[in-house]
């Protein structure tokens, strides 16, 4: 179960009160009349499904009934931040990568858990083709 901080109610609530609504920050084609089929297809159907940091749209359906965004790690399920509609995330895949390069241990991307044993490294390593 998640314990989610609603940015509008300004407190943590049970996951039971919320509903996930898919990927956040989807932009409708700015000129719908002249958008190509590919642009429409991308907007309507194609989603990122990343391994690691993901920005999601959630709604506090039993509560204030407001939509807001969550930055979540799809590997560890850790919720890194929640922020209101119209705001930009302060944690993105890029900032997390930077933290890793600077030697901060975070559980994202290739690692199943923090402190995984070296012999399981091969299992955890992403296959680079």
């Amino acid at each position: 179960m998640f314990y989610i901080h609603c940015p509008y109610c300004q407190e943590h609530r049970e996951e039971e009160e919320f509903h996930p609504r898919g990927e956040a920050h989807l932009m409708r084609p700015t000129d719908p009349d002249n958008a190509t089929d590919e642009e429409w297809g991308d907007y309507l159907f194609f989603r990122q499904n990343p391994r690691g940091i993901h920005h999601e749209l959630w709604v506090h359906s039993v509560g204030c009934r407001k939509f807001f965004n969550i930055t979540r790690n799809t590997v560890t399920y850790e919720i890194l931040e929640t922020y209101r509609m119209g705001e930009q995330p302060s944690i993105t895949a890029e900032t997390e990568k930077l933290r890793k390069e600077q030697g901060v241990q975070t559980a994202d991307g290739g690692w199943q858990t923090i402190g995984a044993q070296p012999d399981s490294r091969a299992l955890n390593e992403e296959t680079s083709s």
């Binding site: 009160e17 039993v62 509560g63």
Partner: peptide, 10 residues
């Protein structure tokens, strides 16, 4: 006062 889940109702 909060709006919350009450025995699967609200």
């Amino acid at each position: 006062g909060v709006t919350t889940v009450f025995a699967k109702a609200t």
